[in-house]
Computed example of a mutant assay.
Amino acid sequence: MGESARRDRLVALLAPVVEAEGLDLEDVTVTPAGKRRLVRVVVDRDGGISLDDVSEVSRSVSERLDASDALGNSPYVLEVSSPGVDRPLTEPRHWRRARGRLVKAALTDGTEIEGRLAEADGEGVEIEAAGRFAYANLAKGKVQVEFKRLDDEDDDEDDVADGDEG
């Protein structure tokens, strides 16, 4: 069985298990790791996921894999995680989850746009200072990593009372 066919079979097997936990299955990969295989399952949902979510879905995915013959008799190591910030924005749900973030997107006509993602709905996205774009016109997008400058932090720390020398 080819890698593509194996991946498709694993997606079909695991998607209902992940969805039953209230999560979206974003990716499944299998890579050789010595005599074992490393099975990476990437899950997400609106609002993000917690360690408890990862633990629950990991248990459910492991039970489903053990009950099937999808991996044959070979031992495997299961890794369940959320997508990293470098995940490309390819689905409407990815764009929706990036609302408020700085994004850079390549358009199908070859131009690039960058700005804060103001809105993402079923039809497309609104990027501040760039405009509205239908998903059909977006080749791919990516969230840009932003580092907060120290002088941008809230001034709450300056509210400490003076003269409290104990």
Rank of each mutant, 00 (worst) to 15 (best):
A20R: 13
E21I: 03
E21N: 13
E21R: 11
E21T: 05
E21H: 12
E21D: 15
G22P: 02
G22Y: 08
G22F: 08
G22R: 03
L23Q: 03
L23I: 03
L23E: 03
L23V: 03
L23K: 01
D24R: 04
D24S: 08
D24E: 14
L25H: 06
E26S: 03
E26I: 14
E26R: 12
D27Q: 08
D27F: 05
D27N: 10
V28D: 05
V28P: 02
T29W: 03
T29P: 00
T29G: 04
V30G: 02
V30F: 07
P32Y: 10
P32V: 10
A33N: 06
A33F: 07
A33T: 05
A33I: 01
A33V: 02
G34S: 09
G34K: 08
G34N: 10
G34F: 10
K35I: 01
K35W: 03
R36N: 09
R36F: 08
R36M: 11
R37Q: 13
L38K: 13
R40S: 15
R40K: 15
R40W: 10
V41Y: 09
V41H: 10
V42S: 04
V42T: 15
V42L: 11
V42W: 11
D44T: 12
D44C: 08
R45F: 04
R45G: 06
D46A: 13
D46L: 08
G48F: 08
G48D: 10
I49G: 01
I49D: 02
I49M: 00
S50P: 01
S50I: 07
D52F: 07
D52P: 01
D52L: 08
D53L: 04
V54Y: 07
V54F: 06
S55M: 12
S55G: 11
E56G: 07
E56P: 01
V57N: 09
V57K: 08
S58A: 15
S58N: 15
S58T: 15
S60R: 14
S60Y: 03
V61P: 12
S62P: 09
S62H: 14
S62N: 15
S62K: 12
S62I: 05
E63C: 07
E63G: 12
R64D: 04
R64Y: 04
L65W: 13
L65H: 08
D66C: 13
D66G: 12
D66S: 13
D66P: 14
A67H: 07
S68W: 13
D69N: 13
D69T: 12
L71G: 09
G72F: 02
G72C: 07
G72Q: 03
G72T: 07
S74W: 05
S74V: 12
P75I: 06
P75T: 09
Y76L: 03
Y76S: 02
V77K: 13
V77S: 12
V77M: 11
V77G: 00
V77E: 14
L78V: 10
L78Q: 12
E79S: 15
E79H: 07
V80D: 09
S81K: 02
S82T: 14
P83T: 03
P83E: 02
P83L: 04
P83C: 06
P83I: 11
P83Y: 03
P83R: 02
G84P: 00
G84K: 00
V85S: 01
D86M: 01
D86K: 00
D86V: 09
R87S: 00
R87H: 00
R87G: 00
P88F: 09
